[in-house]
Amino acid sequence: MGHFRAFVVTLLALDMVVFVVGAYLTPPDPFTQLLLIGPALLLAPAVAWWLVYRDGFAQIQALFEPDDES
């Protein structure tokens, strides 16, 4: 998968997570939801860019790999 396609898929996945978590954590008041979901949606492209173009996925995976110091 090309970098741009991976970026778009990652961005869409992050947007979906923001909407689900925002709807779950905030009351059904639209203004309150905008206070949480709005900034998160503005931050999502930067996070997607870091994950795809700056090898963020590899860095996160390295955090969870077990050390072989036996």
Results as ranks from 00 to 15, higher is better:
residue 14 L to D: 03
residue 61 Q to P: 01
residue 48 A to M: 09
residue 45 P to C: 10
residue 68 D to K: 02
residue 25 L to G: 02
residue 54 R to A: 13
residue 4 F to N: 04
residue 57 F to W: 15
residue 38 G to P: 14
residue 1 M to A: 14
residue 30 P to N: 04
residue 48 A to Y: 06
residue 6 A to Y: 00
residue 48 A to I: 10
residue 62 A to R: 14
residue 26 T to G: 01
residue 50 W to E: 11
residue 7 F to T: 01
residue 22 G to H: 08
residue 52 V to A: 09
residue 16 M to D: 07
residue 19 F to E: 13
residue 18 V to W: 04
residue 55 D to K: 11
residue 1 M to H: 08
residue 25 L to I: 07
residue 58 A to S: 14
residue 62 A to P: 03
residue 57 F to C: 02
residue 51 L to M: 15
residue 59 Q to M: 10
residue 61 Q to E: 14
residue 17 V to D: 07
residue 29 D to T: 06
residue 21 V to W: 11
residue 23 A to C: 04
residue 24 Y to S: 12
residue 6 A to E: 06
residue 10 T to V: 05
residue 11 L to M: 11
residue 51 L to V: 03
residue 45 P to M: 11
residue 69 E to W: 12
residue 30 P to L: 05
residue 2 G to T: 12
residue 39 P to K: 07
residue 59 Q to R: 15
residue 41 L to E: 05
residue 32 T to C: 02
residue 63 L to Y: 03
residue 22 G to T: 11
residue 34 L to N: 11
residue 23 A to I: 03
residue 37 I to Q: 12
residue 59 Q to L: 12
residue 65 E to K: 13
residue 6 A to G: 01
residue 29 D to M: 09
residue 9 V to S: 05
residue 21 V to N: 03
residue 39 P to W: 06
residue 7 F to R: 00
residue 40 A to R: 04
residue 22 G to A: 07
residue 7 F to E: 02
residue 41 L to N: 12
residue 63 L to A: 06
residue 8 V to K: 00
residue 39 P to Q: 06
residue 28 P to I: 00
residue 52 V to H: 09
residue 35 L to V: 09
residue 4 F to Q: 05
residue 50 W to V: 11
residue 58 A to F: 10
residue 38 G to N: 10
residue 43 L to V: 15
residue 63 L to H: 03
residue 42 L to Q: 02
residue 67 D to F: 05
residue 25 L to C: 02
residue 3 H to M: 06
residue 47 V to R: 01
residue 18 V to L: 04
residue 35 L to F: 11
residue 51 L to Y: 08
residue 40 A to C: 15
residue 1 M to W: 03
residue 30 P to S: 07
residue 36 L to S: 02
residue 26 T to R: 06
residue 13 A to K: 06
residue 28 P to K: 01
residue 30 P to M: 01
